[in-house]
Write a protein that binds this DNA or RNA. Structure first.
Lengths: 254, 254
DNA sequence: CGCCCGCTTGAGCCGCTTCAATGCTCGTGG
DNA sequence: CCACGAGCATTGAAGCGGCTCAAGCGGGCG
């Protein structure tokens, strides 16, 4: 598979994140230019570096040009829950719109290039440009819908189903970006996958091994090949064959 | 405790949901009037009646004037996850903004009065009235932040902590509406609580009983009194006393 | 009044966590 | 160039928390 270029050219990126993003918003070209003028195309975040910290003030929105980020919340007791992984083309920072303060930590899990726009500029523009505003609403709505899906996963699925969903979700997103839908690299640590899916590292690892033995996948460290996409899909919600009752809730010990 | 009036007066509600809602948006009174003109103040939904069905087209947004609703998603396999309970003053229908189609079923768990505004009207108005738009964004952002909190609950908390969070959350919301923060009625079935919190009815019931025996609460059917608010708060994230390690992930069997 | 449904409680089991040990990869320095 | 250590991943063994199955109870509604 191919990778994004590791560095950006001088003044402007050839395929700026916001540009691509605003293409899908169907902006008129003059509006697209106005948006483009306000964007800083060169923000670089290195691996393990924080983009946003929980509690800090919302200042900018970002579209990822290349790389991978994780977003997490931590409660008073120190428990961490990863709420999502973001990849190229995706918008980061929406959780802070409500309060004006970031609710989440956002950290790069690989060196990442971002396109940045000041939230104040964005808000002003979106007042002027209805289709931009509409697209923005779509993004917010999509985030809500996505979160609901994860709530279903966390509240009602067993370990194998969670892993299957996780892999299929990545497959779809890679595929949508022109990469292979069956072979890719998992950029995040097992620990992070576990936090995201509400299970321990060990269970993540064991489930991967199990899928590997069943020839559903071939996994080698962070490189993975999905060998039986249909079966993997069937595994979700296919609780009829192995278990006649719809499953609910948690899991084993805690 | 007091209850909302069970019927609405003729043409307009004295304390319309949207009116209260727009008050917190700091609208100019003329703008508030423009909003008010577009609102149907008389929508009634009876217990167990659907307000929205997953897959149906988004047509209106609602602010609850009185009553209680639940919102849930169901996957292909028939698994249901309740994603939230909504009470007076809260906005319903945000999950559909992204796609224009409802992702969730919304059902009244008691007879409820709603104030309705056509989404198209709302969208038009919010273009004209920046503070309305801003408030709308705040609501969307708040929903995202709320969902992240539930993801933390579902992904990283044990049964007792989930129940404690659930009760404290209700306590805060009732309190914010002028009701007692320690005595209230749970309008939803145990089953629904279980679905929302990612656990079975039995575990919900057992945890209530356990809290009851510990004198943390006094529970009788759907009537509950919180007898030790501070202790209940401590129970969350106070995993240091009884368990030296930060807990992660699922739970018992599945 | 009687039925149905929602809630509670008990007993046993299972899946996931916990604890522990080993292997692997990569970056660092001798 | 290789030795070494740190962090990540895998695997095994044992325990426990919440699920499953089952039975009993109470209250609301027809």
């Amino acid at each position: 598979m191919t990778y994004f270029p590791s560095s950006l050219p001088g003044g402007e990126c050839p395929n700026c994140g916001f540009k691509a993003w605003s293409r899908s918003a169907n902006l008129a070209s003059c509006d697209s230019e106005r948006l483009n003028d306000r964007i800083d195309h060169r923000r670089l975040v290195k691996r393990n570096q924080y983009l946003n910290r929980a509690g800090s003030k919302l200042s900018s929105l970002y579209v990822i040009y290349s790389g991978f980020l994780k977003t997490s919340i931590t409660d008073d007791g120190g428990r961490e829950q990863i709420t999502g992984f973001s990849m190229a083309g995706e918008l980061v920072g929406l959780d802070s719109i409500g309060t004006g303060k970031h609710q989440c930590d956002t950290v790069a899990i690989e060196d990442s290039h971002l396109c940045e726009i000041a939230y104040s500029d964005f808000a002003r523009l979106s007042c002027d440009i209805p289709s931009l505003q509409h697209h923005f609403h779509r993004m917010m709505g999509a985030e809500i819908a996505r979160d609901h899906g994860i709530m279903l996963l966390l509240g009602a699925m067993r370990a194998e189903e969670r892993i299957a969903m996780f892999l299929l979700n990545l497959s779809i997103r890679f595929s949508a970006r022109g990469y292979s839908e069956t072979q890719f690299r998992l950029p995040m640590a097992r620990q992070d996958i576990g936090s995201y899916l509400g299970m321990t590292v060990e269970t993540v690892s064991r489930t991967f091994s199990q899928f590997n033995n069943l020839r559903l996948i071939a996994i080698n460290g962070r490189y993975i090949e999905i060998r039986d996409l249909p079966q993997l899909r069937q595994l979700i919600g296919d609780r009829g064959t192995r278990d006649p009752l719809p499953r609910r809730a948690g899991s084993g010990a805690n």
